[in-house]
């Protein structure tokens, strides 16, 4: 495995506003470890118990008033503001990047005392990487590129590896790779490990987020085992979904992946990040995801270097909630500037 465990994905000295050092750069990378199949096969995930824990969570944790506002601001900081559409154009991507730089209406940000808050990253297809890099220049916001034959991951292996290098060369600092679901479904853990390890190597200094496509893995046990294998192979983040599966991020899947991250941390000391993606569209959902992360992994993970939301419409709802927090009146979408 490459020895770049402390390499930061980004150069220092990016111009950042408001003195908020984005912490994306602070965590040492996951060095990975040899595939430990005994450990992988020992992993269990009891679906109904996991579902009960998640179903009870909203009743167990309630975040109100200023705390809710702060948590929602943190949620914004953790958003990978995303557009992954066939009709993406440079203009559309530039608008998105502008929104990433200034996700909150200026008066709302000011009233909350959180001017300078940005989203965690902007996430686009390879073709849009140069546009996004240019649009975000000087903001400190990294560009993430989905890669490796996203979303199905079934293009020629050689091309999938090459796609990573091209996106990195184009300036992407984070690469969201998709794994070959068939390796999980057939129990070929070695193949999965080798694939992710090679993707990781191809990323070089760019952080690698391994998309498991949990909606296609058949069982939570498979999700748990695949999570562990991807981390052993050196994934910096594990991510639920492409957003294109019929079932994307859910709390049960999240609980399973967070527990895998915790086990891996205890085993190796390495902190791997988590990114739920797809289907998280309300501020309330976002609070529950953050609460679950806090419960299972602790406060250290409540930070953009270790936690991201892959979401396109979440920001809008958070903006409305924050306006409501300030005014006491419910808001509408057209009060918030579009992306």
């Amino acid at each position: 495995m490459d020895g770049d465990t402390t390499t930061t994905a980004r150069s220092e000295g990016d111009g950042r506003q408001g003195g908020h050092a984005l912490p994306q750069v602070s965590a040492p990378r996951n060095p990975g470890m040899p595939l430990d199949l005994d450990r992988v096969m020992r992993v269990q995930a009891n679906t109904s118990a996991i579902e009960r824990r998640c179903a009870a969570l909203p009743g167990r944790r309630s975040i109100k008033k200023d705390w809710q506002a702060a948590w929602l601001v943190r949620a914004i900081q953790c958003i990978d503001l995303t557009t992954l559409s066939g009709d993406d154009t440079p203009g559309r991507v530039r608008r998105l990047c502008a929104k990433a730089r200034r996700p909150l209406r200026h008066d709302i940000a000011e009233a909350l005392g959180v001017e300078g808050v940005t989203t965690g990253a902007v996430c686009v297809y390879h073709a849009m990487v140069p546009t996004a890099v240019a649009a975000l220049k000087g903001s400190g916001i990294p560009v993430a590129a989905v890669s490796t034959g996203f979303p199905a991951g079934l293009s020629p292996y050689r091309l999938r590896v090459a796609e990573i290098s091209e996106s990195v060369a184009a300036g992407a600092e984070e690469i969201d790779i998709v794994i070959s679901r068939r390796h999980v479904l057939t129990g070929d853990w070695q193949a999965l490990y080798d694939e992710v390890a090679e993707f990781r190597a191809a990323c070089g200094p760019a952080h690698v987020k391994a998309i498991l496509a949990t909606g296609e893995l058949g069982s939570l046990r498979n999700v748990a085992r695949a999570s562990l294998v991807c981390m052993m192979a050196g994934a910096d983040f594990i991510k639920t979904s492409t957003g294109k599966e019929s079932v994307n991020a859910t709390l049960p899947v999240t609980l399973v992946m967070l527990r895998a991250i915790r086990d891996y941390h205890e085993l190796t000391g390495a902190r791997v990040g988590y990114k739920p993606a797809g289907g998280i569209s309300t501020a309330k959902d976002a609070l529950m995801y953050l609460a679950l992360v806090k419960e299972e992994l602790g406060d250290r993970w409540l930070s953009p270097d270790l936690f991201r939301f892959g979401a396109s419409s979440l920001l809008g709802d958070i903006e409305r909630q924050l306006e409501h927090h300030l005014t006491g009146a419910y808001s509408v979408s057209w009060h918030q500037p579009m992306a």
Binding site: D66, W67, A70, R74, L112, V114
Partner: peptide, 16 residues
């Protein structure tokens, strides 16, 4: 606590 300060601690806060 201000929103800024809560952002540092990420505490739950009271929910009575």
């Amino acid at each position: 606590m201000t929103v800024q300060e809560i952002l540092e601690t990420m505490e739950y806060g009271p929910a009575p």
